[in-house]
Nucleic acid binder design. Sequence first.
DNA 1: CAGAATCCCAGTTGATACTG
DNA 2: CAGTATCAACTGGGATTCTG
Lengths: 143, 143
Amino acid sequence: MAKALTVEVAGAPALTGYERSCEGDPSGTDHGRAIRHVLDRIGDKWSLLVIGTLRGERLRFTELQRHIPGISQRMLTLTLRQLERDGLITRTVHAEVPPRVEYELTELGGTLIQLAMALADWAIENQPSIERSRAAYDDAHQR
Amino acid sequence: MAKALTVEVAGAPALTGYERSCEGDPSGTDHGRAIRHVLDRIGDKWSLLVIGTLRGERLRFTELQRHIPGISQRMLTLTLRQLERDGLITRTVHAEVPPRVEYELTELGGTLIQLAMALADWAIENQPSIERSRAAYDDAHQR
DNA sequence: CAGAATCCCAGTTGATACTG
DNA sequence: CAGTATCAACTGGGATTCTG
């Protein structure tokens, strides 16, 4: 997840194999590379779910955990940190006892929601079709 | 990748922790669940890249490998099989020597391209902003 | 309450060698 | 050419325990 942090050398961000091999790419807009970047950011198990949950509401740590069944304390923390670092959410600590920390989407994070919704819609709409295709494939390739 | 295959029980597809905990969900359209499904399908390292490469062209195995720098023979094979199973691409074997196998997007796969392009556009447009945010974050949190 | 620190396994990916 | 088979390495993520 923190790839760029672990392999960073002299301030230069780490490069994946794909990126390295594309360094001299003539195309100004390498979509492959771009896609790799989004996926690195929101292609993990929880990021998109956290963003979706923060849609329209500002929530506390525990509230988030309740809204996202199955997420562990550890992964919620890591995911939130990552999203904060990328500027997709903000983290606000209130100087109280007991502590209260609230998370909320930034404007940038908000723009991602649109994509997330599009993805979800696609999934909902095409799930049956995919399910059928799988059944057919498995049926034809069993032994 | 083949999660549903490995943990299948009596014909019922496996459930992730998230899905299990949502079984009684009242909402007809659980976006969280839907997003989980798309991510399971195209959130891996190569699927979206393969789909993007197949955009508009029908390509052979080796051609695909050349178009996608960094992908190993093994991962290309696995990814193609998965996409074929899900009905996103078709695999055509020509009875020749040497063998010729061509891959091409299905209609369903074509619809995914739209989303992929949207993702790529988002990445390209917001990459600088994210980069800046990261630099600021790392700067503020270093020690 | 909101985490930080550890431990650890399962699953994914990569490298390499072999084949119809 | 288009794979398959095998092995090794890496890492994402869960469970658990501790703390300001």
